[in-house]
Design a protein around this nucleic acid. Structure first.
Lengths: 215, 215
DNA sequence: AAGTGGTCTAGACCACAAG
DNA sequence: TTGTGGTCTAGACCACTTA
């Protein structure tokens, strides 16, 4: 008579079925478990080795750290960081007016080998000035700590591009080599536009993972 | 006094807030609307032009058709379809035993130009024999119609690979050209393994889109 | 028949945003 | 203060799987 699992867990954690199902659904959407109608809820084998989950919300560094790999911003790179204001046409969705942007270019290594080049463009009206300490450390933490700057959702576009110039040099690749490119548009919880980013990733070391549930 | 929107919609469709919120959440997860805590629910501008949503569940053909583009399996390609049994080591997650597979190779065009090459490997114990009519038409429809073969979820891995041989020839590209590659592992609603697929996509015409919500 | 997942009603409290 | 989104309790019915 101890085999009804749901009731047991409900009692154990003192929650209703609704709450428990919300939690399980979140795990299912991330691919950690699956729910089979009529038979039960089951654990799933671990994810693809070395792949970056497109559904994670912990950031790239933490995502790779979970797999025992280290993403780092090498010391030499700090010299290359740009910190400048730009007056640009920002074309993001139906958003088409002149805005003052702050651009940041950073490079990162994976286990001390070249991994990605990140170009970020922040709306200055949103973030204000960015201190050097934030540039060298975690820009994510700097944004997150500012009141009213909670990122709500991000549009991502993934494609393959030929690279030249600085990214190619950082990767030790010839001009015209392919690269996986991710273009992100970040919005606040309020729906307001915050920034866009472009990640150039070294294609031989980059795999993206995602789970698709068929309604 | 007509400005309370949620109550109005609840009355209009005769549903409770729970049901309405489930529906809105589904739309939000697909990126069609966003919900801002305290202010309301808003429509979002249309998606990136020409991009393939990784979260769609309508199949590639319907996805592109929604954007006015036509994915087709050209007549000449049917001659190239393989239909053979193979005895292979199938390495899918913790699944590692000898299984009889049915392999299908198909090519597709986008607006009558080369677009992708699809390699599929079905567990014969699941699908049985596949008639020629299904190969030439919609394999998706054939699977879906068989009782007990409802696809529940799919693991996808996206990367960039150099291609040679048949895919390169179909794309009119030189050997060693880059290609976007998607590897899918499909599972039934019951959690049982069904098939794996590999899509080689012409990189200049391929963009993937997805929305990431930060809990 | 029993236990499960999927869906729904009805009602409640909190946090947040805007007038 | 009002209306919103986010979360939760309590209870219900249906569809599905398994014994």
């Amino acid at each position: 008579m101890d085999n009804f699992q749901l009731s047991r867990v409900m009692k154990q954690y003192q929650v209703t079925r609704y709450t428990l199902r919300q939690a399980l659904k979140n795990l299912a959407n991330l691919g950690y478990i699956y729910q089979a109608h009529g038979s039960g809820t089951f654990a799933r084998p671990h994810h693809v080795e070395g792949a970056i989950s497109l559904q994670n919300n912990v950031g790239l560094t933490a995502e790779m750290a979970r797999q025992g790999k280290i993403v780092r911003q090498p010391a030499l790179v700090n010299k290359l960081c740009h910190y400048q204001r730009q007056l640009l046409y920002l074309r993001a969705r139906s958003w088409r007016k002149i805005a003052e942007l702050i651009s940041v270019i950073r490079q990162r290594t994976l286990d001390d080998e070249p991994f990605l080049v990140e170009h970020s463009y922040y709306l200055k009206s949103m973030v204000g000035e960015i201190p050097d300490s934030a540039l060298k450390g975690s820009l994510f933490a700097f944004i997150d700590q500012k009141p009213g700057l909670k990122v709500g959702f991000i549009d991502s576009v993934i494609e393959c591009e030929m690279i030249t110039g600085t990214p190619a040099q950082f990767f030790n690749l010839a001009d015209g080599s392919p690269s996986l490119v991710v273009r992100d548009d970040s919005y606040l919880s309020s729906g307001n536009y915050l920034r866009f980013q472009k990640y150039f990733m070294i294609f031989r070391k980059t795999k993206f993972f995602m789970l698709k549930k068929m309604h």
